[in-house]
Amino acid sequence: MQAGFFLLFVLAPVFDLFRLDLNLKHFILLGYNWTLGLDDLLAGRISTQAAALNLVWRGFLPLVLIGGVVIYVAWRWGRLYCGWVCPHFSVVETINQVMHRAIGKQSLWDVKLIPNRQPDGSPFQPDTRWWWLILPLAAGFAALWSVVLLTYLLPPAEIYGNLCRVALTRNQTIFLLAAALAFLIEFLFARHLFCRYACAVGLFQSLAWMGNKRAMVVGFARHRAADCASCYSACDHVCPMRLKPRNVKRLMFACVQCGQCIDTCSQVQTANQQGALLHWVHEAQAASEAALDARQARGQQSCS
């Protein structure tokens, strides 16, 4: 699913599925010109009433519809867009995995190394030679993203044609170099930090999710916590957002519902007849997790 949406992100401008053409000064959607009719209003071809209707029908309503769907999905199931669709997050996970192989950590800013074994028990030893893949991988993603973003703003045939002929304009060259440098720095040093603290789309999804006590969440079988004694906190180490999945919901504000912690717990507990300790919960079970949040919050207030 992630690979499919990443390809869609790259190819959408090429096939005129969606882009903003700065030359034409309007959006193109599914091959059709998507305008608000303001040029027609200024030229006197339509009335102010028709222009107002265009603003509502072609501008306001699509934004409300798209935003409403994203917020409803987040309210009900969490940040599914981030964990399953967002092309940025697929880059985050890819570079995380390669960096883990290189230095034994998913991020340069992680304080501790991940224990040198995989969730299935097999041994693992970091190898610095993987750095030779991290740098070109991050640079390749950065270059690709800068080009793709430019094709959302200018005709893709023009951009790819100029690249093939090495005939980019001055402004195109400046945009591509600046964007590629910014993405390279972000991909190398601040991947999950951007997702946690700087992404407005993710923030609004998190707020919607936190507002629903019955929303789907990763639940922890706390009555079986003793089964974690033989584990090396594998669920914590595998989380691409650097969260602790066994915590209460309010401490997992940035969770993207990728489910990697659940898969890892299932591998660790393969020999346990009772199965994994982490699992998806929703509705009444999720409400009980929210109630635990409230009890812990009251306990912290009492202690303070």
Rank of each mutant, 00 (worst) to 15 (best):
L7V: 09
Q267N: 05
D227E: 14
Q285G: 06
A50D: 14
L53M: 13
W77F: 15
F204Q: 08
H192Y: 14
C235N: 07
F194V: 12
D21N: 15
L7N: 01
G59M: 05
L176E: 03
G161T: 07
V85C: 10
Q274I: 01
M99R: 15
V238M: 00
F189H: 02
Q106P: 00
L8Y: 12
E93D: 08
F204T: 12
Y232C: 10
Q267H: 08
Y197H: 14
V64D: 00
G83F: 07
K213D: 11
R101N: 13
Q300Y: 11
A215S: 15
T270M: 09
Q205D: 13
V111W: 10
N33I: 10
Q172I: 06
A190K: 03
G67N: 07
G37D: 01
Q296T: 07
T48D: 08
L150N: 10
A287N: 06
M216T: 14
N272H: 08
T264Q: 00
W57H: 07
W77C: 04
F18L: 14
V14R: 04
F60C: 10
W209Q: 08
F183P: 07
I159R: 06
Q257D: 08
V91C: 09
A276W: 02
S122D: 10
L203T: 14
Q49F: 12
L207W: 13
R58L: 12
L133P: 02
A284P: 00
V56L: 15
R101Y: 09
N96F: 03
H237M: 02
I28Q: 11
L30M: 14
